[in-house]
Amino acid sequence: MRVTAFNFVLLLFGALYRLPGVFAVNLTPDNWDEVTSGKSVFVKFFASWCGHCKKMKPAWDELMKAHESNPYYVIGDVECSANDTMQAFCKKYGVKGYPTLFYGDPSGTLEKYAGKRDLDSLQLFVQTNLKPLCSAANQDVCTTEQKELLQAYKQMSDNELEQKIKQVSEELTASEQDYTATKKRMEEEYLAFQTERTTSLSLMKSVLKANNGSGKEEL
């Protein structure tokens, strides 16, 4: 086979990818659901130009490598600076600075990691905080209610499940949008109330002060 410059780059990248310490689970909007389904996650959102990100990269890469085969959780990277799509993806999770580390159930609300970023601290955190999630493949940690739901879902066809997943996903999206709109409206109403009351309070105090001052002058 003729090795072109492009093929050589691909071969070199493949070789580097297999070297000890060179490992990454790169998460994107396209593979997020597939890779994280039924698992807890510990994810680093970063930018390629970020100095703090580069500083913690060796420890994080070692952490990912150490847990790459774990069946219960995923430790991975999300490169926010890759393109506009990735920036929007990171914004969805509330990322405002780099690196930002989140953990928990990817189908719910992720929690922000605020601990130290050296390897020992990260390892200890993984061991004590990343717990198996209830799933069809891991029912030992399921509650009685969750097991009953799993049994009910097992009675459904793949098409019925896909329709149900679509329905619930749409309901969650609508609920989130409604919450965001309601929150914004309440904030606006609160600010308007604050402004009106603050203005009234200031004017009343000024009148009271003026009245007291006038009274003193008359005496």
Rank of each mutant, 00 (worst) to 15 (best):
R2H: 09
L19Y: 09
A24L: 02
V25K: 01
P29W: 02
D33Y: 01
V35F: 01
K39R: 15
V43W: 01
C53S: 14
K54V: 05
K54A: 11
A59N: 07
K65V: 04
H67Q: 12
E68N: 09
S69Y: 10
V74K: 12
G76W: 03
D84M: 10
T85I: 05
C90P: 02
G94F: 06
V95M: 07
K96Q: 13
G97M: 07
Y98A: 08
Y98G: 08
P99C: 09
L101P: 02
F102K: 15
S107Y: 04
K112C: 08
K116H: 09
D118T: 08
D120T: 11
F125I: 02
F125G: 01
Q127W: 00
N129Q: 14
N138Y: 06
V141M: 04
T143I: 02
T144A: 15
T144V: 12
L150Q: 06
Q155R: 12
D158F: 07
E160K: 07
Q163Y: 09
V168Q: 07
S169R: 13
L172C: 03
E176W: 06
T180H: 08
T180Y: 04
A181I: 07
K183L: 13
K184G: 00
E188L: 12
L191C: 00
E196Y: 08
E196H: 07
R197S: 08
A210I: 01
N211T: 09
N212A: 09
G215F: 15
G215A: 15
L219V: 10
L219R: 11
